[in-house]
Amino acid sequence: TGEEYIAVGDSTAQQVGDLTFKKGEILLVIEKKPDGWWIAKDAKGNEGLVPRTYLEPYS
């Protein structure tokens, strides 16, 4: 379980453990880390770190 967020920009994984996503994708945020990198899952079930500045709450 988690909260749904929509990507407001494209982000390409810079290192192992990062999640690549495109603008408009809905991501499920699993954990919000205080350093600004959140753990999220995409629609295909891929999981990784995403920069919170690229996400907005999805409603």
Rank of each mutant, 00 (worst) to 15 (best):
T1G: 12
T1S: 12
T1Q: 12
T1H: 13
G2H: 11
G2R: 09
G2E: 08
G2K: 08
G2M: 11
G2V: 10
E3N: 08
E3A: 08
E4I: 14
E4T: 14
E4L: 15
Y5I: 00
Y5L: 01
Y5T: 01
I6Q: 06
I6H: 03
I6Y: 06
A7S: 05
A7V: 06
A7W: 07
V8T: 11
V8H: 04
V8Y: 04
V8W: 05
V8C: 12
V8S: 06
G9N: 14
G9E: 15
G9I: 15
G9D: 12
D10A: 07
D10Y: 05
D10I: 03
D10T: 07
S11K: 14
S11N: 12
S11L: 15
S11D: 03
T12G: 09
T12S: 10
T12D: 13
T12Y: 13
T12K: 12
A13N: 10
A13Q: 08
Q14M: 13
Q14R: 13
Q15N: 14
Q15K: 14
Q15V: 11
V16S: 11
V16P: 14
V16K: 12
G17L: 05
G17R: 06
G17T: 07
G17Q: 06
D18G: 15
D18Q: 15
D18I: 15
D18A: 15
L19H: 02
L19W: 02
L19N: 01
T20H: 09
T20G: 08
F21K: 00
F21S: 00
K22A: 07
K22Y: 09
K22T: 07
K22S: 08
K22G: 05
K23Y: 05
K23P: 02
K23E: 05
K23H: 05
K23S: 06
G24E: 02
G24V: 01
G24C: 07
E25S: 08
E25L: 02
E25W: 10
I26L: 07
I26V: 09
I26P: 02
I26R: 06
I26S: 03
I26E: 01
I26N: 02
L27C: 03
L27T: 00
L27D: 01
L28N: 06
L28Y: 13
L28V: 10
L28T: 10
L28E: 05
V29L: 04
V29D: 00
I30F: 08
I30R: 04
I30S: 04
I30G: 02
E31R: 10
E31L: 14
E31Q: 11
E31A: 11
K32Y: 05
K32A: 04
K32E: 04
K32H: 04
K33M: 09
K33F: 11
K33H: 11
K33V: 06
K33D: 06
P34H: 10
P34R: 08
P34F: 09
D35I: 03
D35R: 03
D35C: 09
D35S: 08
D35M: 04
G36T: 03
G36F: 04
W37K: 09
W37N: 09
W37A: 07
W37S: 08
W37C: 11
W37H: 08
W38V: 04
W38N: 00
W38I: 02
I39F: 11
I39V: 13
A40E: 00
A40Y: 02
A40D: 00
K41P: 00
K41N: 03
K41M: 11
K41H: 06
K41C: 07
D42I: 02
D42K: 02
D42M: 02
D42A: 03
A43Y: 09
A43R: 11
A43F: 09
A43H: 09
A43N: 10
K44H: 13
K44A: 12
K44E: 10
K44T: 09
K44Q: 13
G45L: 03
N46I: 08
N46Q: 09
N46T: 07
N46D: 06
N46H: 08
N46C: 07
E47N: 05
E47T: 14
E47R: 10
E47D: 04
E47V: 15
E47C: 14
E47A: 09
G48P: 00
G48Y: 05
G48L: 04
G48A: 03
G48F: 05
L49C: 08
L49V: 10
L49N: 08
V50F: 01
V50Y: 02
V50R: 00
V50H: 02
V50W: 02
V50T: 03
P51R: 13
P51C: 15
P51M: 13
P51T: 06
R52S: 15
R52A: 15
R52Y: 14
R52I: 08
R52M: 15
T53N: 13
T53L: 10
T53G: 12
T53W: 15
Y54L: 15
Y54F: 13
Y54D: 07
Y54I: 13
Y54Q: 13
L55V: 06
L55I: 08
L55A: 01
E56M: 13
E56S: 09
E56L: 12
E56P: 00
Y58L: 11
Y58N: 06
Y58V: 10
Y58W: 11
Y58A: 08
S59N: 13
